[in-house]
Design a protein around this nucleic acid. Sequence first.
RNA 1: CCGCUCUUAGCUCAGCCUGGUAGAGCAGUCGACUGUAGAUCGACUUGUCCCCCGUUCAAAUCGGGGAGAGCGGACCA
Length: 327
Amino acid sequence: MDTYDLLTRNVDEVVTDEEVREVASDPDGKRVYVGYEPSGVLHLGHLLTANKLIDLQNAGMQVVILLADVHAYLNGKGTFEEIRETAEQMRAQFLAYGLEESQTEFVYGSSYQLEEDYVLDVHELELSTTLNRAQRAMAELQGDETAKVSHVVYPLMQALDIEYLDLDLAVGGMDQRKVHMLMREELPKLGYDARPCLHTPIVADLTTGEGKMSSSTGVTISMEDSMADLEEKVNSAFCPPTRDPEGDLENPVLELFEYHVFPRFERVLVERPDKYGGDLEYDGYEALAADLGSGKLHPADAKGTLASYLDELIAPGREKLREIRDE
RNA sequence: CCGCUCUUAGCUCAGCCUGGUAGAGCAGUCGACUGUAGAUCGACUUGUCCCCCGUUCAAAUCGGGGAGAGCGGACCA
């Protein structure tokens, strides 16, 4: 696979193609980041962007993970002390998941976001960004309550982080695209370069198959799920025996194979009793999805297989979490 | 600071005027049917009615106090 394809596989949006091709032409040592509000337990949403980071590391890039403690604080997630503690757990889980330690830099937002230059630049952005624009950037992310002033400062800081962390590329879910567009528009006004972005898809809700909208209360698979939890959650997932369900629905089981399993495993073995045709083996997503669509692969077998591969992905992080908690 | 409105199930809300210890929809749980899930059918669960005091035989409902949330308070219309 050539470098550009590796950088952009499984992404929903590339901004812009030319700029990312330039990064791909000489990726070695280039800096890419994702920002996360610290959380004690990683879930599949975190792992989806982590998969992309692993791709980028394989291409030789240096990954910067922003442990966005100040952002979490602005979002009402607790005291700095509480946020820090969950951030440390988050770091351990990312490394256990498979990020290469020598190519991963973890940075606390508070280590530079409270300094004078940064703060003055925030104010500069406050001056040039309309309330409406900042609020729209946050709408995907915040959704719920009445906007606080902190909520509109939040995306401005995200834009500045990309400059202050000295990045060549920004990664985020599709829910981050408005923030990134704000970044691309506003940074040049301060004399900084707009950076290219990669946006990962938002996976459909596991139980309903509804995509696009940020799932609020759906079932989430997380780093602390046991094999039994995974089997139960995956088994209850929406999974018609089709690739593309009717309407706006997606097949979340297939999406998990596409975005979580195949990026991490060369081949996938479906163990199946002879009664149903015996084992099947796949070396890529397309073949598996095609078989599910044609009926050759039954959803129940796909689910059992998915649960065990997810278990394998999660096991190291789950173990790490257990150690941390036992201390 | 002043004014208006709101606060009842996980969510959206009805009930309050005309007191009698609470309802709907959605969600959720469990069965049936499918070798998964969904859809469909059948059954079921859920509550400090924001808090305190008072009136009353009896308060979600009436009276007083308090808390939280939302909206509004130049001019124009």
